[in-house]
Amino acid sequence: MTAPETGYTFAYLDDATKRMIRRAILKAVAIPGHQIPFGAREMPLPYGWGTGGIQVTASILGPDDVLKVIDQGSDDTTNAISIRRFFTRVAGVATTERTADATIVQTRHRIPERALREDQVIVYQVPQPEPLSKLEPRRAETERLHALADYGLMHVRLYEDIARLGHIAKAYDYPVMVNGRYLMSPSPIPAFDNPKMDRMPALQLFGAGREKRIYAIPPYTSVRSLDFEDHPFRPIRAPHACELCGSTDSYLDEVLTDDAGGRMFVCSDTDYCGERQAGANKAAAE
């Protein structure tokens, strides 16, 4: 652990900003799935790089927390490394790549394969918090639809997929109903991850920096992917085993390996895959 940079308050944001974000987070927890506007601050990295998630993390983070940051399941991409290094520098917190060791997991577009526990918090980076945005661009109108719990537009959108294509053609950012009341964007996680949100023991927080919205799902809260009785929700997964660890139940990335059409499927969650490989090596050595 390195000493934090001097000249910044702990975790970068000033305390008035943190209070404002903290009040928004508490109301978000009290109204599961409802988007709450907040005064997103300019952060030292551009919108689209996780400014919403970073502000939520900065507002909840304490010196004893252990932070893990993933980008599409990976701990070692530019975005994840930058955010980890940012919090190491401005808060001096410990970081980890191991899901089991983290108290806060900030994520871009994945939920770790390892089930999260009660003593963990997961913070999602959200580009577009409004699930109805592509169907109704007027913010004032979508707020009214949420107030009325009128989600017919989204059902029609899913129905049109079925009518045209025979199935719901939405592989990520698949809309969910939270606690039977609010339609919510799960952020662009693969639909494969949606079932993990349902009754998750960990608190789930969502931050959208450019769109300036915060929302939350308390632990053990019902999260249901929208579907129809005759077209039930099905999480989508590439029908292969991971070529590195052999997992047949994790979410896979397809990786091109050459210019001749060569490709391989590997776990998107690098920590999960690494642990399985280490476990297999250990078993082989014994």
């Binding site: 943190k18 903290r22 508490l26 009290a30 909840i60 983070l61 009660e118 608190l203 632990p219």
Partner: peptide, 19 residues
């Protein structure tokens, strides 16, 4: 310590509100 004590108090309230 206004910064760290406020953080600890907030996390306590967040824990209470979440559960």
């Amino acid at each position: 310590d206004p910064v760290l004590d406020a953080q600890a108090a907030f996390r306590a309230v967040l824990e209470a509100m979440s559960r």
